[in-house]
Design a protein around this nucleic acid. Structure first.
Lengths: 268, 268
DNA sequence: TCCGTTAGGATTGTCGACAATTTACAGCGT
DNA sequence: ACGCTGTAAATTGTCGACAATCCTAACGGA
């Protein structure tokens, strides 16, 4: 009556484990918890001012998301990304974002383009000021918005982990930037293709965008050639992520596959 | 020395929460825990012969995977899939399996084809004996093997939930089967295309396969038209799956988009 | 008869303590 | 000096109990 009661969402509609899980995700993403870090339960519990119970529940969530690696009677550790993981991340991202773009092309393209344009503007601003960190942030926000605009709950959920891992890659490699302006252009081209409703253009631009990232972050691999650099054979779906599956990320693993052409089908 | 010590994997390399989580997943998948069921902690803890602690940790995993829905101070419930979810599942599956197929085409195709052929043989056997359940099992096993063969950890992990949800859809709709033989043929065509290394054929066959499933399970939708039937707008990536986001799955939602042609690009 | 109130029961959320296992280190023997 | 062994500390895994919250239903009043 007095208050227009906007969106009050009664006190704490969210579970404690959910809150802690989100904070931990952020901490892992922004580098507060570097890869390989062991998460001491007692220490973190004190920091969050909760008991070990809720904290463990939150950590189990991250384990199932693949952000933490569990070693029984040893502890929980932040995953460290080997080169094969970098490649794998982009395989998955490519799949997710392609599907999202496909949905968008068949949806209300204009409003989506407007939202995406906002992120690109932020990127441009960051580029002008020569602020690599801000540029990465805006870049990720672009892709996050792209996926969110698909309206698919599952694509969004699956992408959350991938975007966090992407950020981990970027901060690990300390942004080896070549062609800052170029990146802004690439994103703008995607938006333009969305506005035009040109399906083939959107998909091939996106694929090229991903391929570029792979070339920068995991040279020697390509989304359109060679097998995964990971030396692991076919994986059993029922056990992965459960038993630890430690990957020794000790350097060498270069796949013989030479990078093939940028993208296959011509854009418009 | 005496024993050839095969793969002993010291006692219990897997966490208790992991074991319970897997069992719960199976129970949800095979229908022992129908959609909407509330998971009483005390009851389940007694059944697993553990305390509520490890059980809650296991359940939090499933929450983050999207198989359980959490309502604070109310309990955990098995998700029930509305029509919009069915469509969403196939959007995501289509994305994942396409990426997996792409990896396979660039990898060792023959050995993969052999593995997949085994699943199809099982399908054929089930079809002969007119056993819908066994056919579904074999069908899912095919797709599981397809994704596993990609060698991508992340694709495998993301697909796990999707395949469980797929099984939930099928058992809910009690297998409205038309064209049993046809399905076996479709899978065989995919294998054949993999053997031939015909990328375009593999991708369009797979897309058509998914589109067929959508037509059967969520008529009125198409992977290549109309926006998602879900009435929810763009989703915020940071909150989904955390705050509950209850979807009232009350029937009507038909998208106006008429189904377009099977698949776009011609196959070979 | 209908509605608001209030007790009861049940379930979830949280906590502190104990048990089990691993790791590190000191001591001893060769 | 090197390696093995046994003990001790620290951390994780598990449990039972208490507190907070919600649902149900019986009760009383209009």
């Amino acid at each position: 009556m007095t208050v227009p009661l906007a969106d009050i969402e009664p006190v704490s509609r969210e579970s404690t484990a959910g809150i802690i899980a989100r904070q931990l995700r952020d901490a892992i993403m922004n580098g507060s918890l570097p890869p390989g870090t062991q998460l001491g339960e007692t220490e973190l519990a004190a920091q969050f001012q909760v008991s070990r119970g809720p904290l463990r529940e939150a950590m189990q969530r991250l384990v199932s998301e693949g952000l933490l690696r569990s070693e029984r009677h040893r502890g929980l550790f932040v995953i460290d990304l080997g080169p094969e993981d970098v490649f794998d991340i982009y395989i998955a991202r490519s799949a997710i974002e392609r599907a999202a773009a496909l949905r968008i092309v068949f949806g209300e393209r204009e409003s989506v383009a407007a939202v995406l344009a906002e992120s690109v503007r932020e990127m441009a601003t960051a580029a002008e000021q020569d602020d690599p960190t801000a540029l990465s942030e805006a870049d990720l926000r672009f892709h996050e918005a792209l996926i969110a605009a698909s309206g698919s709950k599952r694509l969004v959920r699956m992408a959350r982990t991938l975007l966090i891992e992407t950020r981990m890659c970027l901060s690990a490699l300390q942004n080896t930037y070549q062609g800052i302006e170029e990146r802004v252009t690439e994103h703008n081209q995607i938006i333009e293709a969305i506005r035009a409703g040109d399906e083939d253009a959107v998909l091939s631009l996106l694929e090229a965008h991903m391929e570029d990232a792979v070339q920068r972050l995991a040279p020697g691999n390509s989304l359109r050639s060679g097998q995964a650099p990971a030396p692991l054979g076919p994986v059993d779906v029922s056990t992965v992520d459960e038993r630890t599956l430690v990957v020794t990320s000790d350097g060498d693993h270069a796949a013989p596959g030479r990078a093939t052409a940028k993208s296959g089908r011509g854009a418009k």
